[in-house]
Design a protein around this nucleic acid. Structure first.
Lengths: 211, 211
DNA sequence: ACCTGAACACCGTTCAAGT
DNA sequence: ACCTGAACACCGTTCAAGT
C-alpha cells in the first residue's frame, strides 16, 4: 500500500484499509502494537491522515471489535426451534472461538460494556430469542443473558492469555473448552430449573464427557 | 509529600509511598490517570526516581492489584466446616465487592492471568479448601475453581463499567449483585450435582429471592 | 543507595495549509 | 475531500552523574 507518492498526491486510502491495517497489527503484535502511528506507518501515510477515515483510536478499536463479532455463527432456525438449549451452547461456543481467535480484542471487549456495535446487538438478540424459546419468562431473560455472556467472555479472556508467563501451568485449550461448556450447562440448567424443572433436555444436564 | 528540596537532597521515598500514590491516582482518574510520570509528579520527584523502588510500571500495577486483594474476607473456619456452600458464596461476594470498589483494576486483573501475587494465590487456596469440604473430588476442583472465578471477575468487570456511556441502560448495582449470586448458585449446584446429588444445601439452590 | 538531568524513542490529536 | 508538516502535550525507560 505504501507506493511512493509525490507531495500533494492522494493516497487513495479507504476506511476499510485503515481497519484491515489495524486488524493486522493486532494479530501480529497484540494490543500494544496497535497505535495510530503504527497503522499510518503500515499504510505509508502521515499519522494524521487516518483522521479523515476514523474519528480516533477508540472508534477504530470499536469498529474492529464489532467487525470481528460478525464471524459468530448463528444457529439455523430449525435447530433453534427444536433444540433451543443445544442452540444456546452452539452460539456461545462460536462466540468463544471467535474471540479466542483474536485474543488481543478480549480485554477491550471486557473494558467496554461488551461493545456497542450492531454485531454485538445482533448477538444479544439471537441469544434472547433462544432463551425465550427455552421457556424462560421475559423478566428473567436479561439476567440469564448477562450470566451466559459473562461466562463466555470470561473464558475467552482466559483462552486469550498470552503464553508470555511460563511460570503458571498452561491449562490446555481442550481443558478450557470443556470447562466453558460445563459451566454453560450448569448455568442453563440452573436458570431453567429455577422456573420449570423439566424444560432442559438431558444432554444439556449430563455434559459432553458422557456422550 | 512534595516538600521543597535542594538539588542533591534525598526525597526519602519508600516503596509504599509509590504504591499509595499509584492507588490514589487509580481511584481518582482510572487506569488512564496512572502513569509513571504522574506518580512521580504527585510525589514531587523526577520520573526516573521511581525506578529505585519499583522495577517498572508492570510490577507497580501487579503490586497494587495484589495488595488490593488483601481486603477479601476469608470465611471463619467454623462456617467453612459447617456450611461450605454458603462460605463459597460469601468468599466470592467479598472478592466481587473488593474488585468492584477499585474498578480500574478489573481490566488489569482480566488482562493478566488473574494476578500472580501471594494474595491471589491465597484466595485460590481458600476457595479450593472450601470446594474440597463441599465433597468435590480433587480432579474436578481446578475446573470448578476456574468457573467460579471467571464468573465473579466477570461480574466485577460489569460492575466496574464507567458510567461514561449514558446510552445504555445502567443495570443497577443491586440487579448485578443478584445476578452474581444466582449464577454462583447455579454453578455450585451444577458442579456438586454432577458428582453427588444431595451435597448442596437447599438455600444454595433456591437463591436469595425466596428468602 | 537514592535521586536528578538529559535524552531516546515513542504516543494521540490538532491546526493550518496545500491540492 | 483527502492528505501533509509541524507542533503540542504527553508516555516508559535508560544512562551518566551527583551526593
Amino acid at each position: 500500500v505504501a507506493t511512493q507518492r509525490l507531495p500533494g498526491q492522494r493516497a487513495g486510502l479507504s476506511r476499510d484499509d485503515v481497519l484491515s491495517a489495524a486488524r493486522a497489527l493486532l494479530d501480529e503484535g497484540g494490543l500494544d502494537a496497535l497505535s495510530m502511528r503504527a497503522v499510518a506507518r503500515r499504510l505509508g501515510v502521515a499519522p494524521n491522515a487516518l483522521y479523515s477515515h476514523v474519528a480516533g483510536k477508540t472508534e477504530l478499536l470499536d469498529a474492529v471489535l464489532d467487525e470481528t463479532l460478525a464471524a459468530i455463527d448463528e444457529p439455523p432456525p430449525g435447530a433453534a426451534a427444536a433444540e433451543p438449549a443445544a442452540a444456546v451452547l452452539a452460539l456461545m461456543c462460536s462466540a468463544y472461538e471467535v474471540l479466542a481467535a483474536r485474543p488481543a480484542l478480549v480485554p477491550l471487549y471486557v473494558m467496554r460494556q461488551g461493545a456497542r456495535g450492531e454485531r454485538s446487538a445482533r448477538f444479544g438478540e439471537v441469544l434472547d430469542g433462544l432463551l425465550e424459546r427455552l421457556g424462560l419468562p421475559a423478566a428473567r431473560i436479561p439476567e440469564v443473558r448477562r450470566v451466559l455472556i459473562v461466562h463466555t467472555i470470561g473464558f475467552a479472556s482466559l483462552a486469550a492469555q498470552s503464553p508470555d508467563d511460563p511460570g503458571e501451568r498452561p491449562v490446555s485449550a481442550d481443558e478450557l473448552a470443556r470447562s466453558l461448556v460445563h459451566g454453560l450447562e450448569w448455568l442453563l440448567a440452573g436458570a431453567v430449573g429455577s422456573t420449570t424443572d423439566a424444560a432442559v433436555p438431558d444432554r444439556a444436564r449430563r455434559g459432553p464427557g458422557h456422550a
